[in-house]
Structure formats: C-alpha cells, structure tokens
Design a protein around this nucleic acid. Structure first.
Lengths: 111, 111
DNA sequence: TCGCGTTATATTTTTAAAAATATAACGAAA
DNA sequence: TTTCGTTATATTTTTAAAAATATAACGCGA
C-alpha cells in the first residue's frame, strides 16, 4: 500500500426481504419527478428511457401499500405525476442515511 | 415508512483515480488464491471462469509497482500462484474497512 | 371532436457482458 | 521425451441487459 494512494468509496441502499428497494439512483428519480411533476421529464433529465423510469417507479410502489408516486394520464399538459407523503418521507430518510454514510467514508478514507 | 420494514445494506470498495480497484469479490478471490495456491482452484470455488479470475488479478496488479499476485506456469502441479506481502496488506486493510462498515450498517439499520 | 403531451404497455432491435471453447507455453517428474 | 495440470491468451458463442420503436389510453382545452 506504500506505493499507491487509494480512496474509499461505496454505496448504500434500502432492502426489503433481501431485495434492493431503493438506492441513490431511484431517489434521484423520485426527486426529479417531485420537481418536474412528470415521469417523462425526470427520465429525460437522467438520460434514461421513460420505460426504465416507469419500471423503477412501479417496482418501488410495489413495496408499499400506499404508492410512493401517483400518476395521471390525459388532461392539461398530457398528464402528471406526484410524490406522496410516503414518498417524501422515504426520500428524507434516505438522505439522512446517505449523509451518515458520507461521514463514514470521510472518516475512513485512505492514508 | 410506517407500513414496511426495510434494512440498510451497502458495499464499499477502494478506488484509484476514481476507478474501482478492489471490492469484496476481488478480495475473496485473493484470499482463495492464498489458500489454494492456484488461480484455477480459486476461480472454480467462486464459480467464475479462469479467464475472469485472471483478468481481475491482472487488473489489480496493474495498480501496483510490485504485483499482488505472482504466478508461475509449468512444474510440479502444473503451476502455482502466490500472494505477495503487498497483497496480504491489501487484504488486511480491506477487512478493517469492511468491519468498520459493518458496524456502520448495524448502527443505522431500519427502525 | 380533434389535437396535444403525457402515461402505460408490448414488442423488437441493438449492444454489452458473460460464458464457452480452443490452444499455446511452461517446467517438474516419470 | 512424454505426460500432466496449470498459467496465459485469443476467439467464438451465448445470454442478458439496454435501447429503440410502436401503439393505445387518457382528459383537457381549442
């Protein structure tokens, strides 16, 4: 280890039944939906396909009795999507964990 | 969050120049090489192809002036592979970090 | 009632990753 | 000098993931 310098990095996520439920990518998607009110716009911003975004949202929703994202089609603007209270709590919780993890990485970064 | 219980999980790894250099899979490979003295046996144990194992080792070695794995072909047993002192230090360092990370996960696991 | 932009979904195509296959090089030991 | 099991490497094949394409449903507003 004397001859190179490395840094510690990592990822955290939330699991349900040992299955990944929410990581930093999905949280970003939720936040962008919240900000734009649109799945399509959020997907475009993150350079993923609408389908991919929709699948991710459906996957997250499937873990909850109450959905995290509610969407409507038709009407003014063509449709819209909103984040529920449940979803806002989820985003906030993940940010808390993420922030603690960031501190952990700083504490343990290479010599 | 009231309606489901989740657990926190994650992964850590060492980076060099923003590139992943060593994670828990590669460490396990190094340990199995150390234990068996053979790249092939280590690969078989981890159910990966010899090529895959060899590529991983080469990749790790490329970050160091002194190699982490030294291998010889031919001779008794057909050939062998050994872990250098450099490699042993690397494995140990990763274990330390991994153990600290494990503690972090426990501290922050779901309510 | 028609157009618009979005949600929702299925299907096809493309791309990238993984696995499989093949083969040469090697040195000890029989 | 031949056999053996491994290291080392290239090439081909298979598989899985991602991307692209297509199309229907929807409801507001013009």
């Amino acid at each position: 280890m004397a001859d190179i310098s490395y840094t510690l990095n990592g990822r955290i996520w939330l699991e349900v039944n040992g299955e990944k439920m929410l990581g930093h990518g999905r949280v970003e998607l939720l936040e962008r939906i919240q900000a734009s009110g649109s799945i399509r716009q959020a997907a475009l911003q993150m350079k993923m396909s609408y389908k991919q975004a929709w699948d991710l949202i459906n996957h997250i929703n499937s873990y909850f009795e109450k959905p995290v994202v509610i969407s409507q089609r038709g009407g003014k603007g063509g449709g819209k999507a909103t984040i529920t209270e449940e979803g806002r709590k989820l985003i906030e919780k993940f940010h808390q964990l993420q922030s603690a993890f960031h501190a952990f990485l700083l504490e343990n970064k290479g010599e």
